[in-house]
Simulated scan of single mutants.
Amino acid sequence: MAIRHAIWLLGSLLFSNLLFSHGQIFLNNINSVDSVIRDRAFDVLVGRRTSQVYDVPLPTNFSGMVASVMRLRSKTFWNMGANVSAAHIPPRTLPLPHVRRLILVYQSWGNLSATYYDVSGYQLLSPVVSLLAYDATSNSTSLRSAMQLDLRALGDQISISFPRVALRKGLNSSVKCVRFGLDGSMHVDDMSSSSSSSYCTSTSTGHFTVIVPSEHSEHSSSAERGKSKTILVVEILGGVLGFLLLILMVMGMLNLSKKRRMKKMVKEAEDGEVLEAVWIGKSRMPTAAMIRTQPVLENESTMR
């Protein structure tokens, strides 16, 4: 029972670790891209004016992505809000934690969206866009360790426009907004629309996109789904093989420990007193040599 319990516990830990590792890899990839764009954005702001939006030049391996940056005083941000590309932040929005100045970075992932983001059972209808905020209180905007902030809209909600997404009849209820939180969480909500564009709303920062169930998408790619399934199968097989290897290792260690205990017992038995053996019926049993007490003759002194 103890061995079965140990195997079950190890299997549970291995499976949990596999799921955690997959999610952690996804989050690490997103964070690494955000960090590169943040550093480029800080470099752009050196010597630039506040309350102005500037384009951020990106590395060649980020081809297809675009980014913008804006630096603001918190008081101005609270009173007037801000517009950064397709992101509209209304007045009465606070940076959390509170800082004297903040930097807003807007990103559109373009054709790299599907490479980094995958929502199972859904198809992306728009590029992923990001609205991130950082502490700019320090005079050095090139400071790489700037704290990342959250935003909290106390009045109207923050809106992210997706002008190229047209809500067609029959699909309005299926089209959803997705916000990927900074901790890797995913929040799904209905999409809103106006006469000029469709948009998603939020009360905080994050990464946003528009999705629709795969069966309604005219642009769903069977090749991408097959690739995802192949990766999933490989991960499952790898986990199973790793689990089996772990079981074999545990069983081997238990057998080795058992053999060592048996060897120790045999050695102790061999080092002990050697007993003769006799046959009693059909059984061979150990016996010790009998030592009789020598008789002592009584003499007259003892008798008296």
Rank of each mutant, 00 (worst) to 15 (best):
A2R: 15
A6R: 13
L14Q: 10
F15R: 06
S16I: 07
F20S: 09
F26P: 00
F26Q: 14
N28D: 12
I30R: 13
I30A: 06
N31T: 08
V33N: 03
D39Y: 02
D55I: 00
V56H: 12
P57E: 07
T60L: 13
N61A: 10
R73E: 00
S74F: 04
S74W: 02
K75N: 00
T76L: 02
N79P: 00
V84F: 08
P90H: 08
R92G: 00
P95T: 08
L96T: 12
H98G: 01
H98C: 00
L104N: 07
V105S: 08
Y122V: 00
L124R: 01
Y134H: 10
D135K: 03
S140V: 02
T141L: 14
L143R: 11
R144L: 14
A146T: 12
A146R: 15
Q157K: 14
P163C: 09
R168Q: 07
K169Y: 07
N172T: 14
S173A: 15
S174L: 08
K176R: 15
K176A: 11
V178Q: 06
L182R: 10
D183N: 13
M191H: 06
M191I: 15
S194L: 05
S197C: 03
C200G: 05
T205M: 04
G206D: 12
V210K: 04
I211P: 03
H219K: 11
H219A: 10
E224Q: 14
S228E: 08
I231L: 10
G238S: 05
L245T: 11
M249W: 12
L254H: 10
K258W: 06
V266Q: 12
K267F: 01
A269D: 02
D271N: 14
L275T: 09
E276F: 05
V278M: 08
W279D: 00
I280N: 06
R284Y: 10
M285H: 01
P286W: 04
T287E: 02
T287G: 03
T287I: 07
A288N: 09
A289K: 11
M290L: 13
P295S: 06
V296K: 14
V296M: 07
E298Y: 09
N299Y: 01
T302M: 13
